[in-house]
């Protein structure tokens, strides 16, 4: 694999990550925000696997595995929270949930 290709993977990973980030910051739907976070997880996993291939080590795989586990757990908790919020407040918008207001 030519050296340029590795950097291509990295650039793709960065771009995906930033797209996810922008989604979290810009969108108001909690569901979409959660999905954007999943995008970021995916980008991170791609980065790890790229470097795992570059150095031929299994540690990157382990990390990627961990990312999938954490992402799944996070999705479960996040969705549960969303269900809870919708159930109690009928809010379609994270901006309506302002219990953190100081």
């Amino acid at each position: 694999m030519p050296g340029m290709a590795v950097q291509g993977y990295l650039v793709l990973s960065v771009v995906l990550f930033v797209i996810g980030l922008a989604g979290v910051l810009v969108r108001r739907s909690p569901l979409v925000m959660l999905m954007s976070i999943e995008l970021m997880w995916g980008a991170a996993g791609l980065l790890f696997l790229t470097f795992a291939r570059l150095w031929a080590g299994m540690e990157g795989h382990i990390f990627s595995f961990l990312i999938i586990v954490v992402g799944a757990a996070e999705a479960a908790i996040g969705l549960a929270l969303i269900v809870l919020i919708f159930r109690t407040r009928d809010a379609a918008d994270v901006d309506d949930v302002r219990a953190l207001r100081g």
Binding site: R28, M33, V94, D95, G102
Partner: peptide, 8 residues
């Protein structure tokens, strides 16, 4: 400090 998660 308005409580908007997105702002945080």
């Amino acid at each position: 400090q308005a409580g908007y998660v997105r702002r945080y």
